[in-house]
């Protein structure tokens, strides 16, 4: 042992040296670095998890958004369809009203024409009576009692009026 330089004192000193170094390095190097590595690993894991969560949330929101968009589109279409229906009804109503008005106008016109015709007929009859009277006066050469003659002719015409009608009816 002496020849190899081994002495208990030096041996123990070297062991103590190692223990001191172990304790100091553990305190100054291993613990802080390992703690740092550990905390970093934890932080990275948390960040990754957070990112994953945010991504999932974004996807969820995207889906929700698309759903709402679809819903809105459907509602719009429904509203447009309803509006179209209302418009159609309105158009129908307006058309009907217009047809009705036109019909009424035509009717009024017809009534007017009828009235005009009747009036013209009446005037014509008066004219015929006057002309007949005039002609009769010329033929007879004297004036009849105007009132009595007029009566006479009117009756005659009334009969004449009825004749063709009777003749039509008779056939």
């Amino acid at each position: 042992m002496q020849a190899l330089g081994i002495s208990p004192n030096l041996l123990i000193t070297q062991i103590v040296n190692f223990i001191i170094l172990l304790v100091v390095l553990r305190l100054l190097l291993y613990k802080p670095v390992l703690n740092m590595l550990h905390s970093r690993r934890q932080k990275i894991q948390e960040s990754l998890e957070y990112a994953e969560r945010v991504k999932a949330e974004a996807a969820e929101q995207q889906k929700e958004f698309e759903r709402k968009l679809e819903e809105t589109r459907r509602e719009t279409q429904a509203a447009a369809a309803a509006a179209a229906q209302v418009g159609e009804k309105e158009r129908e109503a307006i058309l009907n009203q217009a047809r009705e008005d036109a019909r009424k106008l035509v009717e009024q016109a017809k009534e007017q024409i009828e009235y005009e015709r009747k009036k013209m007929m009446a005037d014509l009859r008066d004219e015929v009576v006057r002309l007949s009277l005039l002609a009769a006066q010329k033929v007879i050469g004297q004036s009849l009692d105007d009132q009595a003659h007029r009566q006479l002719v009117s009756e005659f015409i009334a009969q004449a009026d009825q004749l063709p009608a009777n003749g039509h009816n008779g056939h």
């Binding site: 081994i6 002495s7 030096l10 041996l11 070297q14 062991i15």
Partner: peptide, 15 residues
Amino acid sequence: SPSTDLNFTLGLALI
């Protein structure tokens, strides 16, 4: 060098 001293290497070996 401590590695050329048996006290050092023997101390580590004992530990």
